[in-house]
Amino acid sequence: MPKIDDLPSAYLQSCRDALTEEQAVSLAATNGWAHVDRDQVHADWDEIYRDLSRNLEERSPDDEDTQELIHRHYRVACRFYTPSPKAYIGMALFYRDNEDMRAFHNGYHEYMVEFLVNAITSFARHRL
């Protein structure tokens, strides 16, 4: 399975653009995601990231256990809005591109962001 950096840069940019566009529409339609229990979202993502970080070096982004954790991650993201496959990949790229998000996620494990980027890409391309 190709890693995200094997994909064309124009495709990756279209994923970033999809995230920006879909989030803007959702934010406008939901009064800034007022319906989302952010404390619960952060608690749920924390649990997923802790689960992912255990034995991360032995995991594959494509294995069934990892993909089930990514499915849980996606379901949490859907509390805000249902991202398209491209927007979900865009979210992973945002984790990598944004310094604060990269530092936050890599706080769980030094390779968490790169792992998430590939695991989310696999999930989005093959399961959404």
Rank of each mutant, 00 (worst) to 15 (best):
R75L: 11
D44M: 06
Y11Q: 03
V76S: 05
D5N: 01
H42A: 00
W33G: 01
E68Y: 15
G32M: 10
W33T: 06
L52S: 04
R59T: 04
P61N: 14
I48Q: 15
R54Y: 14
P8N: 10
L52T: 04
E57F: 11
V76H: 00
A34T: 06
E57D: 10
Y49I: 00
L27Y: 14
S9K: 09
T66S: 09
G32I: 04
D63T: 07
R54C: 00
E22N: 02
V25R: 14
I70K: 13
S60Y: 14
A18G: 02
H71W: 08
D44P: 00
R79Y: 08
A43T: 05
R16M: 02
L12G: 12
W33E: 14
H71N: 11
I70A: 13
T66H: 09
A77G: 02
R59P: 01
A24G: 02
Q40G: 02
V41H: 03
S26F: 01
A29D: 15
L12E: 14
R38C: 07
I70G: 10
F80L: 03
E57N: 12
E57C: 13
V41Q: 07
A43P: 02
L52I: 05
S60D: 15
D5P: 00
E22T: 09
Y49L: 09
D63A: 04
I70Q: 11
W45V: 10
S9H: 02
L27D: 06
Q40M: 11
D46Q: 11
E57H: 14
S9T: 14
V76N: 05
L7K: 09
A10G: 02
W45Y: 12
C15Y: 13
R38G: 02
L7S: 05
A18F: 13
A34P: 01
R16H: 08
A18E: 15
G32F: 09
L27A: 08
Q67T: 01
D51S: 15
A43G: 00
L69T: 12
E58Q: 12
S26A: 07
Y74W: 12
E57R: 13
A29L: 09
D39S: 10
P61V: 12
I70V: 13
Y74E: 04
I48G: 13
D6S: 08
